[in-house]
Design a protein around this nucleic acid. Sequence first.
DNA 1: TTGTAGGCGTTATCAG
DNA 2: CTGATAACGCCTACAA
Lengths: 341, 341
Amino acid sequence: MNEPSTIRPRRITSYDVARAAGVSQSTVSRCFKDDTKISPKTRDHILRIAREMGYTRNALARSLITQRSNMVGVIATAFTIRNNPELIYAVGDALQNSGNSLFLMVIKDDDSIGASLQKAVEYPLDGLICCAQMPPDWIEQFATRGVPLVFFNRVVETTVADCIALDHATAGQRIADVLFEAGHRSFVCIRGPDRAPVSQLRVEAFQNRLHSLGIGTIPTLSTDFSYAEGRRSFLDLMARMDRPDAAFCANDQLGLGVLDACRFDLGWQVPDDISVIGFDDIAEAGRPSYALTTVRQPIVDMAETAVSMLLERMEEPDLEARRIMVQGELIRRSSARLAGT
Amino acid sequence: MNEPSTIRPRRITSYDVARAAGVSQSTVSRCFKDDTKISPKTRDHILRIAREMGYTRNALARSLITQRSNMVGVIATAFTIRNNPELIYAVGDALQNSGNSLFLMVIKDDDSIGASLQKAVEYPLDGLICCAQMPPDWIEQFATRGVPLVFFNRVVETTVADCIALDHATAGQRIADVLFEAGHRSFVCIRGPDRAPVSQLRVEAFQNRLHSLGIGTIPTLSTDFSYAEGRRSFLDLMARMDRPDAAFCANDQLGLGVLDACRFDLGWQVPDDISVIGFDDIAEAGRPSYALTTVRQPIVDMAETAVSMLLERMEEPDLEARRIMVQGELIRRSSARLAGT
DNA sequence: TTGTAGGCGTTATCAG
DNA sequence: CTGATAACGCCTACAA
């Protein structure tokens, strides 16, 4: 008959090692725990044999009995991954340093989170860092199941999950203030997708502040948060209106697009003809080719804090919910004419 | 006495559902398999009760018996994550579409892969996509254990793993050719870390080609692959030598740094005073502020292919090793004076 | 179609 | 210090 040319080899288990070492399976198991009593002699003996046989503990089987998978889920949108890759690295690194693993669930946008949440409870994960919006009933769900949850840059009204976020609103106001003080009186806004909460917070705070300073309606465009859309939509807008004094962009990608539109498509001088301000302080914003004035979001610090909060809550599930608001730092560069300090 | 204010709730199991529904545990289990025979009536009944109780199958327990965790590991360096975030997204998305999950292991650089490999066998993962160098004995290890393995942009001489990589060498030669044809005769190279294989392949091919065209030793600097280092080290070099005709940078980040050094620090005209060429075609390279001539690496396509290859091998472990070399596309922009076509 | 029983690879609890 | 034995939560013959 036809016999398979290769069979997936059976995994070597602690029983195999036990047999080879002439001890019981539980003794083998004990070898790999630190705080247990076992004679150094047998331990060495068993460990050597285990190494020879290529034995490794099965983490899945272990987590079944210990009730901990040592895996932490991270839910992140395409945009977050593209725009803040350091976040992924920082979170992964911090998790690994604490003996956990990173179970990454990527989603298209904030609205397509469903399947990931399902997976998070199925696996089950020891904790969850969510960089996206989550329906309230799911938040409850995780709380009931005792799965620690930290929101990253998504503000949620709940008492059962921690959250860390930039204070987008205060920063948006601040930008309105410094532009106004510098004498700017006509503005436009380029924002991200309508459903992106981060964009919304930044832009609304900006607009509200200007309104209270007596500025009327501010022309505002929604885009997909990308350089290309920022550039294109700004040109669109400029074809229909006079040049404003200043443009506020909900993130740096948009800001770079607007800058290039000004310089290369419209032939305007920045900041003499127009001030441009972005948000995030991504690497490119600081380069001399752009020198974009922006608000710095300390993403790596925030990532590390998020992991710490999660780990704390994993230790101490009864901790009351914490809400950390990180203040952004205004980074003054040459893309905007601003009033001094 | 003190009683815990919260206890981690016991997980609801299929036994709980069975009891509530008045059936046996195995019947509950069967409800969640498609191809099994069960009367529609009892199925609906059980599913409804399961939903009411908030029951979800435990994926870990399931994988213990099915011998598949449905988790695929991805090992990526800090640099890869930072510079090719789309890779992470694309891989994650493709995996999820095939019913698998992404177990992400981040490492500092190619040399610090050890712990991740250990985890990969421990968990155990159903497959591994490795974007880093791997010691040969570990490659064997995975083969013996029957864990499918795909290398991404790392060329390995092995018959037991697939690999997909850009043809860095051919691209490096090509750049040498077009620069030489355009009349350039003096060159410098800015490369990545000494241990970064990708950088090495690109630069060595470039240098070898020029040697065979009669060009002598080419001043070459090693850096950390970053914009800042590219800019700084190029300035260093220029302080010690005459202006070369062209600079080849092992990636676009370096290229952008060198461009800014030329324009903002040295006051040179690009490409009149010097031609600058990068590698990767990252988004910023295409923007008018830079317009960096470079080689396009179709990272998303490559990511999807890598996942396909892995899935195929998971189905068919006996497949013989495949080695896909992707040809890069020279993208001509205004940072380099090149010969036609 | 449904129930019974054994097993996946560990860890934990007790005796010895 | 070590060895039985019972979980952990599920899947899957096999029997009914």
